[in-house]
Design a protein around this nucleic acid. Structure first.
Lengths: 347, 347
DNA sequence: GCCGCTCCTGGGAGCGCTCTCAGCGATGTC
DNA sequence: GACATCGCTGAGAGCGCTCCCAGGAGCGGC
């Protein structure tokens, strides 16, 4: 590849001239070469090679109206984005899938509630062809923004605003939270535990509510004193555990809505000299790397294919974009990904 | 904001027509309004408002040759990107700074060694104005790529290829790794420890080498049996700890090159019934969120301002871009950010 | 009252590309 | 052999914007 000469880069015009063809033909070759005879194709490719030609993206976008990029919107308060490898892994999955389809990833981190205007302007500004959004809270403005911007979107996690009438059922990808919770609680029950508590996640996140529902599915008529609220953070897990122990010193198992809270809970149990799993069995959720296997004792937890979820999200969006472009193809549908129980030492 | 009518969005032409001015004047107003009389400015702004006009980014880029976006290149094998909140935090810092300057963040995750071609093509393709790159190993091709693409770059972490003659001293931002290591080891020595071991990071990363150097700065003539190699992962830390214990059962302190490895080391010490900090004092590095404070006992470690580093990187790059545009301003220089010892229970 | 100056404004070119459409040669058909 | 057909190529328009440059309005000075 020739060094980038300072100043101007070769244009299609230059390639065409060098190859002795018209700009139109050069363009055809650069875009796949359909309907151009072999010898000409070769000549153009040779010219491209020799000149180190790289298409000007802006010019192309200007006429095709497609940017070849999608936005990933993360509207999560800082704390969680930091401490949660969840996002990193999803993004990795998304990146892999997008890369495989020559699509770029523009990361939009929402910096506080006042920042949505910027996001809206960006998404509506034709910078990207579509959007992937995460972690929608009940009052999340992102759905409205993408709809108004007129670009396809796919959500990570089941949105709570499902019943919006104007909505064309925006597809989402989510783990089987409810099923996973059932799996965990059922497992604890099979272990012979009788007073199974729950540390729940924040009420404005569907994943937390779904896990709570799963817990209730198994333990019909559960005593409300067995449920404590957390915020998906280590600290909140510790606090909830302390609260539970105070209210119900007789509990013999806890299903915690995520691993981060479980690690906090574990710390409290350890501090009080309560043995895990002997006295209290503990099951987490997420099978989070570098958390679940590193606690003492290592966490039994519900595992999900996080990277796979990211890939899936990207795939759904790409399909929607394709549909938009070609005007045909199937409408992408939401996907619920399976979960499994990962047995370690805490239960 | 008007709903996006399907099909066409208003153009500058439409705004100009509605405001009763020329396209040129409308453009001036949209770009700040310098040199346009107040009444016209108002008329144009009103038209913009009413039509819901949003500038077409591609058209603008086509003529200005500036994209308003920078790439963040992460060339790190999956494992570390996953388990290391480090990146998340740096990115958050970068995002904040870029956002404040109306610049977008395009995330490029390198998917294996064969993927650099794609990165090179992308960076040279005029998609972005500059690049931020992370975690350069000795043979990292990223520096060559950005140089060839002719775009400014700033690196996170001191690159090892410093002495490249063709290089205009690419600026970088790095923590004071060596000083931090000195701080940690000195602290252990002040505690009265006499056989201070070290678990080092991978030799192809300058941060690991700098920390090793700092360790050696304090412990001149250190016995090589006191140093074990790790790979910045939990598992490698555990392995190195076991190795050290075998070689030097008499050691009374360990300075570990990062918190992840320290948590692995801690696990091994616990398994063997060695009390921390009584028998062996342990100091980590990074003060990594949700690791350092969650181990048992919590880690004494060297803390750095990770988000601040990200901001700084972005700021340096923005300055370089500005310089490029205006042809003046100071050349950005590398920055070493300070570190502090965070005392917890492990030493 | 005229000239020269400054300050704004509009006309128009052109950024690099895609895509439609017309044209042209080669081929097939009767 | 004349004509329709097909496949390929090139000319040219135009995507939406910025920016150069010319020209007009307004004003002060003599």
């Amino acid at each position: 590849m020739p060094e980038q000469s300072p100043g101007s880069r070769p244009t299609l015009e230059a390639v065409a001239a060098r190859a002795g063809v018209s700009r139109a033909t050069a363009s055809r070759v650069v875009n796949g070469g359909d309907g151009v005879r072999k010898p000409l194709v070769d000549k153009v490719l040779k010219a491209v090679e020799e000149l180190g030609y790289i298409p000007n993206h802006a010019a192309r976008t200007l006429v095709t109206r497609r940017t070849g990029a999608v936005a990933v919107v993360i509207a999560e308060p800082e704390t969680r984005f930091f401490s949660d490898p969840f996002f990193s892994q999803q993004i990795r999955g998304i990146s892999k899938e997008l890369t495989a389809h020559d699509t770029q990833l523009v990361l939009l981190l929402v910096e506080g509630p006042g920042d949505f205007d910027r996001i809206a302007r960006y998404l509506a500004g034709g910078h990207v062809d579509g959007a992937l959004a995460f972690s929608l809270h009940t009052d999340d403005p992102v759905p409205a923004i993408t709809r108004r911007a007129g670009i396809p979107a796919v959500y990570g996690g089941r949105p709570s605003w499902t019943a919006d009438p104007g909505d064309q059922a925006v597809p989402y990808v989510d783990a089987d939270n409810r099923g996973g919770a059932r799996l965990a609680v059922q497992y604890l029950r099979d272990l012979g535990r009788e007073r199974i508590a729950h540390i729940a996640g924040p009420a404005d996140q569907t994943s937390a509510m779904d896990r709570l529902d799963g817990y209730r599915d198994v333990l019909l008529d559960v005593d409300p004193t067995l449920v404590a609220d957390g915020a998906f953070t280590v600290e909140s897990g510790a606090r909830a555990m302390a609260e539970l122990l105070e209210r119900r010193p007789d509990l013999d198992a806890v299903f915690v809505a995520n691993d981060l809270m479980a690690s906090g809970a574990l710390r409290v149990l350890r501090e009080r000299g309560i043995s895990v799993p002997e006295q209290v069995a503990l099951v987490g959720f997420d099978d989070m790397d570098s958390v679940a296997s590193e606690t003492d004792p290592p966490l039994t937890t519900v595992g999900q294919e996080i990277e796979g979820q990211g890939r899936l999200m990207a795939r759904l969006l790409l399909r929607a974009l394709d549909r938009e472009r070609t005007g045909s193809g199937d409408v992408p549908e939401s996907v619920i990904t399976p979960v499994t129980l990962v047995r370690r030492a805490s239960a």
